[in-house]
Design a protein around this nucleic acid. Structure first.
Lengths: 376, 376
DNA sequence: AGGGTTAGTTAACTCCATTAACAAACTTGC
DNA sequence: GCAAGTTTGTTAATGGAGTTAACTAACCCT
């Protein structure tokens, strides 16, 4: 535990707002503006936020004091008036560590900057580990990354499969055999840094939302070991009543679907449209084109109600690149248009993720930025 | 336009928070606490909100000044200490007018108290009206209701079919032929009261959320002329990227579904599971039990992905009572359990609405309470 | 050199919530 | 019956966070 907890999202729910809470919000607002607009003068910030120059100057002073912001020199210009001093997020002086536990390959980690750019990558030895051993492996990897890091670390972000609470407790992650495991505290105590854990599909959509082509209302569909689905509505990640949101994999489309799923049930979407299932079908000789059609129909059946009911016109499609390709995306587009009015709208858009490989890692960075700086 | 606009939900998005915003939030917090706990002393409110007694006293004074709160006498007790003076929402002194435009029957209106109890009901003459004529009919009905109202009116709530923006503009309502129609301004100018317009299915879920058995994450499924679906996640109504959320009716389940829908497309859920469609099937002699199974399967196919992906364990099922009954609900429960892991969870609950007739009217009241007092 | 413009700071003020202290009105114990 | 203890609600003083008004600094232009 390094700093007092900041729960940005709890504001305006139940508890009172004191002037100091407003202050904290406005500090974040300045950071958000810098994140959106890049280096700006204090006067620019005042205009953008609606606060006065006096207040902005105070806020910036406080942020410089916290070393979240730095001055980056004078603005070169040919304009009347005193030249402005630019300030910006402390991009050169802060790093974020991300860890991706979602892969079929071993754990991966990265040192990133505040823009989610990956500066250095690490990966653990290829041994499968569960329970306590998985934690040890994770912490070793983190130590390696931290040793290579040349600047102070804002926080550690972790993307884990399974159900993760807002306090970083992994309620259930079959892959590692974790149940009610306080991963966040484990990492914070071992590293002395602030840590934030989030489900891997949620990380992925955060990454697209912040760094990719996102909007206020969007869905991300991810084919991997399973079938994951992140949802953002009104600019807010949907986490569900018990933090189990995103579980598209174990929906059964039709009563006649009876393939056996790893979860013990029958007919789950995952038994048809996960990457392993798709590979199996290919190996059995099903032509790619026919397979695409079939998979697209399955996915569209599950996705169409979501698009219509939530009025979502922005879908990101991602996953193992060998499987999630343009032909499958096109098949999915057509299958959706057949099933949902929303998917026939002019401004509907289904796009492939541009950097599927680093989606989770960069989403970890977004999560850290959100919790430590209040940036979305 | 009677009072400056209060946009409670816009807080913490983009714009700065000034001390006065915090103040307004805390005023609402007091109202919310009174709404939750009933008449309380200032000291009780201080304990519940975490604010000091001094601050609460000031807030209460301001609310009494606005006549949103009244003193309701001393608390009778056998306890040491000075007896407390109870304050409460101004329940006897404030009324809400609701108008329901959703029915197959003509417009209905009601005078309600702050608890959403219906004190008097009104309905317009049974003439179908569109365009400007519909507005005239609505305003006549409103005048009638206002003339009968014995106390000041907090605001007018309107539940309309179609797509309604957050500023009360009806983007599209086929039934009345309205397009981009500023219904809110029309009502405000005619009555001089604050008006709030919302989609009818959204009204319905607000009503269940506040007065019925609701939770932070819930879905309401409503069978009527069409098939509507309201969604609440994280205690917030989902309105969608273009305010069109809730449109479950025009989702197509399977490629082989080809029934002609009123919207011009084929295979829409509405063509199978709307009340008119169900009546038609019954008239054609399909046995009720078989019909229930069939309809449940359709609805469950569309609902299952929503429950799983949004992790929603609370479903309210409502609509025309002759159709939406216990057997159909049971069939839906079973169909959902077959299709969604979430629907098999222990704490999953599907319930029939207890008062389907007044769901929209009472939801109008919730909407007014939310916008005028900040109460959820 | 002087006038106009823009950036950032200083000073005085307002608003909001806090702590500390107190008066009012009850119960309880002796 | 009276002192002691409790709880409520108010008054007064304090400090934090924002504002406006006025000022200095540093530029451009003529």
């Amino acid at each position: 535990m390094t700093s007092p907890r900041k729960d940005w999202n709890v504001l305006s729910h139940g508890s009172a707002i004191l002037p100091s809470h407003g202050r904290e919000h406005n500090l974040s607002l300045v950071l958000q503006t810098l994140s959106d607009q890049g280096a700006s003068s204090r006067a620019d910030l005042a205009r953008a936020t609606g606060l006065t120059r006096v207040t902005v100057s105070e806020l910036v002073a406080e942020l410089i004091n916290r070393s979240h912001v730095i001055e980056t020199g004078q603005q070169e210009q040919k304009r009347p008036g005193k030249p402005s001093t630019l300030v910006d997020l402390n991009r050169p002086g802060l790093r974020i560590i991300g860890v991706d536990l979602s892969g079929v390959v071993p754990f991966r980690a990265a040192i990133m900057d505040l823009d989610g750019a990956i500066l250095k990558k690490f990966s653990a030895q290829a041994r499968e580990a569960t329970g306590e051993a998985a934690t040890v492996q994770l912490l070793e990897l983190l130590d390696t990354a931290l040793a290579e890091c040349d600047a102070p670390v804002l926080g550690v972000g972790i993307g884990s499969p399974g159900v993760v609470t807002d306090r970083g407790i992994v309620l259930a992650a079959e892959k590692f055999g974790w149940r009610d495991y306080d991963l966040r505290s484990a990492v914070e105590q071992a590293t002395g840094l602030a840590a934030h854990v989030l489900n891997d599909a949620d990380c992925a959509i955060l990454s697209e939302h912040t760094f990719g082509q996102g909007s206020d209302h969007m869905i991300l569909l991810r084919l991997g070991r399973g079938v994951g689905c992140g949802v953002i509505t009104h600019n807010t990640l949907v986490r569900g009543s018990d933090f189990a949101a995103g579980e598209l994999g174990h929906v059964r489309q039709r009563a006649q679907d009876t393939a056996l799923c790893s979860c013990g049930q029958i007919g789950c979407l995952e038994a048809y449209a996960s990457v392993p299932a798709i590979w199996k079908s290919l190996a059995e000789g099903e032509p790619k084109e026919q397979l695409d059609q079939r998979i697209a129909a399955y996915l569209a059946g599950a996705l169409a109600p979501l698009l219509s009911v939530l009025d979502i016109r922005d879908v990101i499609f991602t996953g193992t690149p060998e499987v999630v390709d343009q032909p499958l995306a096109q098949a999915l587009r057509e299958a959706l248009a057949l099933r949902s009015h929303t998917a026939r709208a002019e401004n509907f858009r289904l796009s492939l993720s541009e950097d599927p490989e680093h989606l989770v890692l960069r989403g970890c960075a977004v999560n850290v930025l959100f919790h430590e700086l209040g940036i979305t």
